[in-house]
Write a protein that binds this DNA or RNA. Structure first.
Lengths: 154, 154
DNA sequence: TAATTTAATTGGTGTCACGAACTAAGGAGT
DNA sequence: ACTCCTTAGTTCGTGACACCAATTAAATTA
């Protein structure tokens, strides 16, 4: 997931080693997570908190639902939301029809922070792709979207 | 980083929303990290440990160097290598020319575990891209490689 | 040799993740 | 109504991780 395997015959553009799909995506994900991590850190957040805010931009799910969406255990959510709530980034609202459950929503402060992080993240991720051509960036965006869409739709 | 922005005019293939480069890559990275996390978990590892083994497949760096490569603080490395060493996945060898430093290398057990995880990770990541065409997979691999190569070369 | 830099560790704090056990509320079935 | 079971969320205990600041020991420089 991290090494440079046997070099390919000859790179078309420059000396680009084809890492293969698996290593390529794995390492790409580390790069992106690193970038997001830095952005989050600059605002005193963790990647998970940042992701939480991102999720809540257009949703107001219950704890359970949120846990499922983030791929976390429900017990992990309690602490996550607790910490975010303590910073006034997020709010728990009693659900209308079920006195056991809460709806988690983002606060104005949370929205503002999220927007700041987004802007920064955009710049950082664009930096990551700075050496790609505009066409390549577009292509990459489409391929990533295609992949992601499929797996969030399901 | 997580929402579905304004839909594009009309998807070429199917109803693919273009998330844009930033959201697309961010969400893709979450998917990939999730997949790697599951693979690691199935073998009692964390993503970081798995990555550590990956790095050591073709390197024998010092602690410092390793920390830099993983983007971690040197103090984080001590614990990381400690835990891996405790499981006999990794070994500290005194460096030849500097009695302060150690070279970290992977053990046979570590290599074996790494290979198992690689195989599993390959399958899982291929599953992620199952609905892409072979050409798209190839393209994605090349774009990811181009991006990654640039940022590990620098 | 003395002063500085470097490699790594230690100790302290906080985040995050999980599983197991628990509380409280909703629903089923009788 | 009244058990029985499921569901939503929390609590508790444990461990991995990550950082910073401070420390030790070796190497380097002056």
């Amino acid at each position: 997931m991290q090494n440079k395997p046997t070099a390919e015959p000859a790179g078309a553009d420059q000396d680009i080693e084809d890492l293969g799909l698996v290593d390529g995506l794995a390492q790409l994900s580390f790069l992106v997570q690193g970038a997001l991590g830095k952005v989050a850190a600059e605002h005193g957040l963790s990647v998970v908190q940042l992701r939480l805010l991102g999720v809540l931009r257009d949703r107001t799910p219950g704890m359970q639902e949120l846990a499922h969406h983030l791929g976390l255990d429900k017990s992990s959510m309690t602490g996550l939301v607790d910490r975010a709530e303590r910073r006034d980034l997020v709010r728990r609202t009693p659900a209308a029809h079920d006195r056991r459950s809460f709806l988690v929503s983002i606060t104005p402060a949370g929205q503002q922070l999220a927007r700041q992080c987004e802007a920064l993240a955009s710049r950082r991720i664009l930096d990551l792709t700075a050496h790609l051509t505009e066409a390549q960036r577009g292509h990459l965006a489409l391929l990533a979207s295609a992949l992601v869409n499929h797996h969030t739709t399901i």
